[in-house]
Amino acid sequence: MAWRLKLVPEKTSFDFFRYQIVTFGVSIFMILASLVLVAVMGLNFGVDFKGGTTIRTESSSQVDVGVYREALAALNLGDVSISEVRDPAFRPDQHVAQVRIGAREGEEAVTPEMIAEVEAALQAVDPAVVFAAVESVGPKVSNELIWKAVLAVAAGSAAILVYIWMRFEWQMAVGCVAALLHDVIVTVGIFALFQLRFDLSIVAALLTILGYSVNDTVVIFDRLRENLAKYKSMPLREMMNLTTNETLSRTVMTASSTLLVLIVLLVWGGDVIRGFVFAMVLGVLLGTWSTLYMAKNIVLYLGVDRGDKPKKTGGSEFADVEA
């Protein structure tokens, strides 16, 4: 037999429900903790969602955040934060900082004068500084963007719920969407916990997590449906264990290859998309966890209709044709 890289042994018989209370409990705890974190600590919204201006500075000389801060303090800009950006992909003489200025009360449009003042002040303390990117978003747009982001995640979940309901059973649809929301909520929670910057690209990541996580869960449900027809008398709990063990190799294989690519992006993809990639890494890890420990628990709890005519709803007839 030729050598193969195998992260999962050929035949496994893990009991994924053995520590059911603990594993399910952990998921529930993580969801609740995330909601509390978001409520208490709030998210570190980027200008996309909060309004305001970010200026990315690049300089060939060492960045001293304190000096920058002092230079800008004189301008009375209100809410200003300055942070140095470090990245392995930078050249040795490339020193990058991010200056963020909050939107001023009652100001809808962006004021170019303010940006010019800030640039002049920074150039005064560091003549080598150049402004690699300047982005300003007015509060009106940023409010719309938040709303759109929430709408996107909600619409994505709803569409997936309907599709799975049509293709499988409603119990699976509920289990699947619960797993999705778990992944999204906990990812957002972790962003709140570490106060990582939350902007539009993170929303794209959350939607991709939805897509990835549903993919992961659907594959197991697909096999479960097949086994339900194959072993009519096996208890649901055992059958789910069997199904999960059968597909475990694939679950791990796909998760690890996706993670492999994501880690490459995390290391070499540059700092601009780092937040996005990090959210994706969290999503893949959480998605795999929720597939193994969350979605099935809900299906087990709800039970699956296993009568002689399992496909009796209109939607499931469609599933019958394809299966």
């Binding site: 690049e58 809808e108 449009a109 962006v110 170019p112 150049v130 402004f131 690699a132 990117a133 300047v134 982005e135 300003s136 978003v137 007015g138 009106k140 747009v141």
Partner: peptide
């Protein structure tokens, strides 16, 4: 009225 402005070098 300009609601959003972005410059990328």
């Amino acid at each position: 009225e300009f609601l959003e402005e972005r410059t990328i070098g």
